[in-house]
Computed example of a mutant assay.
Amino acid sequence: MKRYSGFKLLIVDDHEHNLFTLRTLVQQHMDVEIFEATSGQQALDIALGDQKIDLIILDIQMPEMDGFQTASILKVRKKSRDIPIIFLTAAFKTQEFQQKGYDVGAVDYLLKPIDDNQLINKISTYFRLIEKERELNTVLERKVAARTAELAQAKQHLENIIRHIGEALLVLNPEGTIIQANPTAYEMLAYEEGSLIGMQIGDVFEEEADEQAGAFMGTWLEALIRVGALKKIDARFIAKDDRRVPILFSRTAITDDNGEISDIICIAKDMTGYVREEPQHEPKTAGNLP
């Protein structure tokens, strides 16, 4: 049964009868599409044209441009550099020429007269290798596509969580510049979406103590480097209209492979409406005055 349907073979020889013999032999054993060239230039035109050639059988002794020159050009062109080339020659039989053939990029160097079965086996070997490589590439592409879809789904899921959580989320760089904010943060601070990006965190945030606010990023970075996270800090957001929004604040540092802080994640819960209970004291009466 013939195999390799869909494969494309280019045979190059300046003698028509050699092309006929080779074409007939291949067609007896394989269901491949065969292209023929009678010169190096014609071979280049076919290999660099619209056809996707899978394998080239190339004669060496040709006028104007020999097989070595043809192979050298094929191997420097992006479209043809990965096409396997089998040299088939009756003239250049010495070890020196064989080495030259491998040096210019051939995968095989066969000498005439050659056994028909040997040639067909050689061609089949390279078609099988190409077939296997394509199968592996297909499997890899499917895995990459599946992984990409999985990551995209996870990213979308995370973005949905960030978008819909009830707490404000701000992501800062180590200099305290806001590089990301979720919709809750914009709503809490009364800013238009996107307008927080590039602002300094100190423009929209103040801590309870003035000295903490004054040493804002320095204090943060020292603490974050030391413990990695600062949680449940009473603070205030400064809204666009200068309103002070009481918040319960947490800050977490993200470090890179060198242990340096790359991002600071800030999460704030709006504490508006939460009233701290004051200690209850019994009213003083005349009966219990000292």
Rank of each mutant, 00 (worst) to 15 (best):
K231H: 11
H29A: 13
I86A: 00
E64A: 00
A239E: 01
A209F: 11
T177S: 05
E278M: 13
P174L: 01
E133L: 14
K232I: 05
A223M: 06
H164S: 10
A145H: 14
K75G: 11
P283Q: 09
P283C: 06
P174H: 04
L129G: 04
M217L: 14
H29W: 04
K112S: 03
P84F: 02
I178F: 04
E135Y: 14
D31Q: 11
R128P: 00
I179P: 10
E96H: 04
I233F: 12
L224G: 08
E96V: 04
D82N: 15
I73V: 14
T21I: 14
G273A: 10
K231E: 10
N258C: 08
A146F: 08
S262Y: 05
K143V: 07
L172M: 03
E278D: 07
I265Y: 15
Q27F: 14
L119P: 00
I261S: 03
D263T: 13
F68R: 01
E193P: 08
G166Y: 12
P174E: 08
I73K: 15
V275I: 12
A209C: 05
R276K: 09
I130C: 06
Q42T: 13
I46K: 02
G202Y: 06
V104D: 10
T148I: 13
T21R: 08
D234W: 08
A215H: 15
H17R: 14
N258T: 06
L19K: 01
I161Q: 04
D203K: 12
E167T: 06
F87M: 07
Q41K: 15
I201G: 03
Y126P: 05
T252G: 09
M65G: 02
M65W: 01
E211A: 11
A223N: 14
I265H: 14
G228V: 08
K122N: 12
L88W: 05
D82H: 13
R134A: 10
Q118V: 13
D103K: 13
G6H: 04
Q153Y: 14
Y109N: 05
Q51Y: 09
P174W: 05
T21L: 15
I178P: 05
G218H: 15
P183T: 02
A253R: 05
I179Y: 02
G214H: 15
P283Y: 06
K284V: 15
Q200N: 13
S250Q: 00
Q156P: 04
Y102M: 01
I225D: 13
N288P: 03
L248G: 01
R128M: 10
L19T: 03
L169H: 03
H15L: 06
T219F: 07
V12Q: 02
N182F: 01
L22H: 08
V32I: 15
I233D: 06
I60N: 02
P84R: 02
E33V: 05
R142P: 11
V227F: 10
L248Y: 07
N258V: 00
I265N: 12
I86Y: 00
A43H: 05
N173R: 08
I123A: 07
F35P: 01
I83Q: 07
E282T: 08
G228H: 08
L111D: 06
G273W: 09
E16P: 11
L19M: 02
D210L: 10
A235T: 07
T148S: 13
I123G: 05
I83N: 08
K240D: 01
I114G: 06
